[in-house]
């Protein structure tokens, strides 16, 4: 019974800013395993929101549901509202959704192609053929991801020759090249060294002027450095959602307090 009680106390605020995405009673099942219970959150536009919690808390599962990356792996119930449309509905074009809601993964996963082709592959698939437009998108997105100066001399180099940090910024640029509106990042810096991590964080702080960013992170310092809002996940439940300063300085839920103090996780 003790175990059930810890989920009873939650503290979830609704941000003042207009939302980019909201979820309403989102539930995720892997077969019979109920991995995410009743997540109702609202992500404000042009802000960074961090999702924190221990391993297995459901934060990545939740994030991946937002652009339907869990379609083949899990059953996702509930509503995901984006510009007034429920994008979790079965008749929605998932390919279209993913063009608006991009994703960057934990391990850098550049394609085994040149740097340029990594950025233009999807654009060409969408039917953009003009070289001038492709070149413009390549340059803009590489600049946005703070990678342009390091690679501009040889864009035909294989992307697999980049360092881990560069490869991850290329993956960010690849997502930006298709001009999304929301960027989902699943622990994008957890495999990187501190200097590369700092570069990614600086990049995200610049990007937030144009994009809405939702980032899963294990690193609480990272969450407090870059995010305006933070959601705390615990064993498949969202227990607390508030401004980052509130979460770290005066958490309302005891489990959140224990986590941010480093007592578990």
């Amino acid at each position: 019974m003790e175990n059930n009680n810890i989920f009873a106390k939650t503290h979830l605020v609704t941000p003042q800013e207009p939302p980019a995405i909201t979820t309403d009673n989102l539930q995720v099942y892997y077969g019979d395993n109920h991995a995410m219970h009743d997540a109702s959150l609202s992500f404000p536009e042009h802000q960074i929101t961090a999702l924190i919690g221990a391993s297995g808390s459901g934060k990545s599962t939740y994030l991946r549901s937002l652009n339907r990356m869990n379609d083949d792996l899990a059953t996702v119930k509930g509503k995901i509202m984006y510009h007034g449309i429920d994008i979790n509905a079965s008749d929605v074009n998932v390919y279209e959704i993913r063009r608006h809601i991009g994703m960057v993964f934990q391990l850098p996963n550049p394609f085994a192609k040149s740097i340029r082709e990594n950025l233009t592959f999807a654009l060409k698939a969408y039917g953009i053929k003009k070289k001038s437009e492709l070149d413009e998108r390549v340059e803009t997105s590489l600049k946005e991801a703070a990678l342009w100066d390091e690679v501009k001399d040889n864009l035909n180099r294989s992307a697999l020759s980049l360092s881990g940090g560069q490869a991850q910024r290329l993956c960010i640029a690849r997502s930006l090249a298709i001009k999304p509106d929301v960027l989902l990042l699943d622990e994008p810096a957890s495999a990187l060294d501190p200097i590369s991590t700092a570069k990614i964080e600086a990049t995200l702080l610049k990007l937030v002027k144009k994009y809405t960013i939702i980032i899963v992170t294990h690193n609480m310092q990272q969450a407090s450095r870059i995010s305006k809002y933070t959601a705390f996940f615990h064993l498949g439940h969202v227990l607390e959602f508030d401004t980052t300063s509130h979460i770290f300085q005066e958490p309302q839920v005891p489990v959140t307090r224990d986590y941010v103090l480093g007592n578990f996780g």
């Binding site: 990356m69 993913r98 592959f121 698939a125």
Partner: peptide
Amino acid sequence: VPRSQHEAGISLGLSNWKTIKGIILPA
């Protein structure tokens, strides 16, 4: 070919077949 390559393609809004044809097969 790592599963993450497939996810990268899908996350860019490409269809399963485009991802297989353009990314997985060349790799």
